[in-house]
Design a protein around this nucleic acid. Sequence first.
DNA 1: ACAAAAGTGTTCCATATACACCCATGT
DNA 2: ACATGGGTGTATATGGAACACTTTTGT
Lengths: 211, 211
Amino acid sequence: MTKTGLTVDIVLFTIRDRQMQLLLIKRLAKPFAGRYALPGGFVLAHESVDAAAARELREETGLEKVYLEQLYTFGDPRRDPRGRVVTVAYYALIAPTQMLHAGTDASEAAWFPVSGLPTLAFDHRKIVEYAHNRLRNKLGYTNVGFELLPAKFTLTALQVVHETILGETLDKRNFRRKITQTGIVKPTHEWVKTGRKPAQLYKFRDGEVGR
Amino acid sequence: MTKTGLTVDIVLFTIRDRQMQLLLIKRLAKPFAGRYALPGGFVLAHESVDAAAARELREETGLEKVYLEQLYTFGDPRRDPRGRVVTVAYYALIAPTQMLHAGTDASEAAWFPVSGLPTLAFDHRKIVEYAHNRLRNKLGYTNVGFELLPAKFTLTALQVVHETILGETLDKRNFRRKITQTGIVKPTHEWVKTGRKPAQLYKFRDGEVGR
DNA sequence: ACAAAAGTGTTCCATATACACCCATGT
DNA sequence: ACATGGGTGTATATGGAACACTTTTGT
């Protein structure tokens, strides 16, 4: 029974300034010391792989109870110069209003727009692309979009989320009709002064959907 | 750096007698000796996880170059009574015309309809359900259906594939129009006497798509 | 002759798309 | 007053769903 190293890596997305952004951490240790990499680390002996992903995310960002979904497992024997390390990749989504607490190890973490990433360690570039694709597809048949917004949001903010993920502009009237007619959002009757004219806040159908 | 056991398991589907069927192998060794399980085994030290899946499938069935896609990684620490073993699950599709060669280890292999499986070893029941769902979904936006047919097939045979995967009957005229109008199949002008009236054989768009 | 599977069109409905103006407020 | 983002309706095109009969052959 051969044994292998097993890690998890997390692509943590948010939307800021109408751009998809993701969190990278500057590596302190070899290999790839000084390079940016995805948050992640080794799976411990007695935890599930899913739990390892949640733990690493918590340790490196302070985030709990975020949307976290397994992506794909990358198992090329040469993906890690230390030797055989298989990684199970996840992606996570948070609202830009959620703040991060610095990790216990004071490594340097920073947000980067997906369209302007530095050179990444390991095969993390490939993982990011895989995650970005998954997110785009998933937007079409699920409600993942809401995970990138706070509990209450304007319809324009929701549209910006969709436009940013899809990389194309959408017609305002068609978008609003589709969203409101499916009953997926409920008006809160609260109003915010975001631009000039106040906008109504909406919330996701049944409360907060696991946030 | 903790190390864990790593296996691959393969859900090999085919369609026979208008039923989804999958291949199971009776385990000889402990744990779960005597129980049926999915074909699979340990990932070797220097092979990629994908290669391990292809190798196990070849060793246990003689099949090469079949459609093989990674599904999901199951990492509950209690899923294997021997201790920590994470498995990367795959699913594979073959035409019912493709014959299997018995594996080198003369273990007992048999086809079972998905709707009448025996009790399975490990968490393999969960893996099968995951694979079955993936296949159903994937049929809607890809051409996986063709992987369950020989290179040349009648439109009725293709419809049976779709009906069997979806578990519902489809309208013949709507189905044929959709298939032929997208140009996804080409008529071969060969005819087979399957029922009473001869039926035309079609083939998938560009040759054999990796079979 | 009859049973069995092959083959073939049209209508309707739902959903997606294209498109432009007025409104409330802050500066 | 004007600039900014919020909010609203209609017409057309497209894709999916419902629906029944004729044809060819083997028995």
